[in-house]
């Protein structure tokens, strides 16, 4: 690694650790929580940890393309949240609950 502009110094590690922590919290939440809105929030948390990581690397390499990637991720996350919330409402209408464990009719 040969950074062109490295004015972020030794705090790079700090940002990476925070991003990984956020990602882990999000993953843990997706795997354990039952409320679907909380699940959506955890997925957003995962995407935002990626944003933080990309911005950190952008500063580290002095390059702009990760920041543009972050914009794409934000747009896609918004689209996903829109679709997800509408699917959630549809599911609520048919099941009268947003507990993910109640959706167990499809099985072998």
């Amino acid at each position: 690694m040969n950074p062109a502009v490295n004015n972020i110094g030794s705090s790079l590690d700090f940002f990476v650790v925070v991003a990984i922590a956020l990602f882990s919290i999000g993953t843990y939440g997706v795997l354990t929580r039952k409320n679907m809105i909380v699940l959506l929030m955890c997925i957003e948390l995962m995407l935002n940890s990626v944003n933080l990581l990309l911005v950190t690397f952008s500063k580290y390499y002095g390059a702009n393309d990760p920041q543009i990637f972050v914009f794409f991720i934000v747009v896609v996350a918004a689209a996903e949240a829109t679709v997800g919330l509408s699917i959630l409402i549809m599911a609520y209408r048919s099941n009268k609950s947003i507990d993910i464990e109640l959706f167990n009719k499809l099985k072998d």
Binding site: V50, L53, I87, N95
Partner: peptide, 29 residues
Amino acid sequence: LSSEASIKYFFTGSFATGVLLFGIALVYG
């Protein structure tokens, strides 16, 4: 059944997207 399938696909799919993005960010790093 259709809405249940949609819920399952959406949550697992967007979880996989998060994992994929994290991988891309690390490869970029």
